[in-house]
Amino acid sequence: MAAVLIGLGLGAEIDLIAFMQSRYFGHKAFGEIYGYFFAIFMFASGFGPFLMGQTFRISGSYEPFLLVSMVGLGIACLLMVALRRTPERVVPAHVT
């Protein structure tokens, strides 16, 4: 069950990058901006486990890293709540 929930969570994170980027930055330079966001996401995904291992090596516990991660997650949640609502986009009718 944990593996399924983790898989669903990871899938949602990656999809949210594209969704949020298109809503807040538009489509003009979608590929370039998405590339930057995805690179940051992938760097953090790779560097996070390394930092967690170093924290365990130094302190003998994962707790300090998890507490910092928990604070970061709380800040990220507050920032998401503070985002302004994007204007509704009107799709023009096709002229036949």
Score class of each variant (00 low, 15 high):
residue 22 S to E: 04
residue 37 F to P: 02
residue 34 Y to W: 07
residue 47 F to T: 09
residue 74 G to L: 13
residue 76 A to N: 08
residue 84 R to Y: 06
residue 33 I to H: 03
residue 58 I to A: 00
residue 21 Q to F: 03
residue 51 L to H: 07
residue 57 R to E: 11
residue 57 R to P: 12
residue 73 L to A: 12
residue 56 F to E: 13
residue 23 R to Y: 04
residue 16 L to A: 05
residue 27 H to S: 13
residue 55 T to A: 07
residue 30 F to K: 08
residue 68 V to T: 09
residue 17 I to A: 05
residue 22 S to G: 02
residue 45 S to L: 12
residue 51 L to T: 06
residue 46 G to N: 10
residue 58 I to M: 01
residue 23 R to A: 10
residue 21 Q to S: 04
residue 36 Y to M: 07
residue 58 I to V: 04
residue 73 L to P: 03
residue 20 M to G: 08
residue 34 Y to R: 05
residue 79 L to S: 00
residue 44 A to P: 00
residue 16 L to I: 07
residue 16 L to W: 07
residue 55 T to I: 05
residue 15 D to H: 14
residue 64 P to A: 15
residue 82 A to H: 06
residue 64 P to W: 12
residue 50 F to I: 13
residue 80 M to P: 02
residue 77 C to M: 15
residue 77 C to K: 12
residue 36 Y to A: 01
residue 14 I to A: 10
residue 61 S to V: 14
residue 44 A to T: 01
residue 16 L to D: 02
residue 62 Y to E: 00
residue 70 M to I: 07
residue 84 R to A: 08
residue 17 I to M: 04
residue 34 Y to S: 07
residue 66 L to G: 10
residue 40 I to S: 05
residue 81 V to A: 12
residue 81 V to F: 04
residue 23 R to F: 11
residue 61 S to D: 15
residue 55 T to V: 09
residue 63 E to Y: 15
residue 30 F to P: 03
residue 71 V to T: 04
residue 42 M to Q: 06
residue 49 P to H: 14
residue 56 F to K: 13
residue 60 G to L: 09
residue 52 M to Q: 03
residue 38 F to Q: 10
residue 27 H to Y: 15
residue 35 G to P: 05
residue 41 F to S: 00
residue 52 M to I: 04
residue 37 F to I: 03
residue 84 R to Q: 10
residue 71 V to A: 05
residue 39 A to T: 13
residue 27 H to A: 13
residue 39 A to S: 08
residue 19 F to H: 09
residue 28 K to Y: 13
residue 68 V to L: 12
residue 14 I to W: 06
residue 74 G to H: 00
residue 84 R to E: 10
